[in-house]
Amino acid sequence: MAATTTSAPPPKTNRIGLAVIDYRGGKTTLCAGCGHNAISERIIDAMYEMGVKPERVAKLSGIGCSSKSPAYFMGRSHSFNAVHGRMPSVATGAVLANRSLMALGVSGDGDTASIGMGQFVHLMRRNLPLIYIIEDNGVYGLTKGQFSATADLGSKLKTGVINDLPPVDTCAMAVTLGATFVGRSFSGDKRQLHAMLKAAIAHHGTVMLDVVSPCVTFNDHEGSTKSYKYMKDHDEPLQEVSFVPAFEDISVEYDPGSTVEVTMHDGSRLRLRKLEEDYDPTDRIRAITRLNEAHEKGEVLTGVFYVNPKAPSFVDLLNIAEQPLATLPESVVRPGREVLEQVMEELR
C-alpha cells in the first residue's frame, strides 16, 4: 500500500505569491507594549494584503524610537534612517530620483512637530507621493520622556510636570497645507488603522496619518492624554472606515445616505460609514473646523478627515519622465556634441 505522507499546508500567500513572513523585518528592540510595535504589525498586514512588492517600497525615517521601527518590518525593502526631523527631504529626493518607488515615511511626534516642523510643512505643501506616519506618543521616547509639541494642554509627565503649551495638531496642519489624504488613528484600533493603511497604499499623493501610539515607558500613566486608557475613554471615531481594494472585484451594496464612498487613484474604494451625519471628507474647510472643534471639546477625533484622490502630485507637477530618473541611460542624460557646439557658438 502506498504510504500516506502528511505535509504541512502550504503557507498562505497574497496575490503576488508572497507570505506574511516576506513582509516581516528584524526583531523589535522597542519596549514590550510600545504602540510603535503595533503599528509595524499593521503595516506588515496592510502591505501583505495589498500585495505590494517589498522591493518597490522605500522606507524612510528620522530619529527616535518610532524612527527605528522600519528596521522591524519589511526587511526586503530598502530603508533610510536619516537625521532627526529631516526625513521628508530625503524622501523627496528619493521619490524624484525614482518615481516608481512606494515611499513610506515613519516619524515621531518629536521628529515631526519640533525639529522637523520646517520640512514637514513643505512636504505637505508639495503633495509628494508618500505615506507619512507619525507615531505619536506626546513625548520624546528615545531621549527618555520629555514633552513633545503634540502633548496636550494640561497633560502630565511621570515626574509631575504639567504641559502648559497648546499642542500642534499635525492633521489640521496637513489639511491646511495641501496633503491629500489626512487621518488620525490609534495603534490600539486594529481595524481602523488597518483599513486606513490600505487606503493609504492606494492613494497617489501625500498621505499624512497621525497615529496615537502610547509610550508605555514614559507616557502611559494617569494624567497622560496619550495613554492606552485615555484613548480608550476619549477616542471619538468620525466614521467606520473600510476599504475595498481594486483587485477584489466585489460589489458590496452600501447606503449612500449613511456611507461616503471615495474611489481612490487605483480604482480601490474607501468606504466611510458616517457616524456624524453631515461630515464630508472631501471638504477641506469642514475638516479644519471639525478638528478645531475636537480640541475645544477635548475629544480625540479619529478617522479620515480629508481625502482628495484627484489632486496632481509633486511628480506630476514637475512633469518628469516616466522612467526613473536615477537610471536613465547616458544617451538620454548627456546631450550630444551638437548641443555643446551650439551653446559655445552662442557664447562667442
Binding site: P88, G93, L96, Q119, H122, L318
Partner: peptide, 23 residues
C-alpha cells in the same frame, strides 16, 4: 527634477535621498 527647497537642510537632504536612490 529641479526643486527650490525650503532651506539648505532640505536641499542637501534631497540630494542625499536622490543619491541613495541612484540619481
Amino acid at each position: 527634477a529641479i526643486v527650490q527647497a525650503e532651506d539648505e537642510l532640505a536641499a542637501i537632504g534631497m540630494v542625499i535621498g536622490a543619491g541613495w536612490a541612484g540619481a
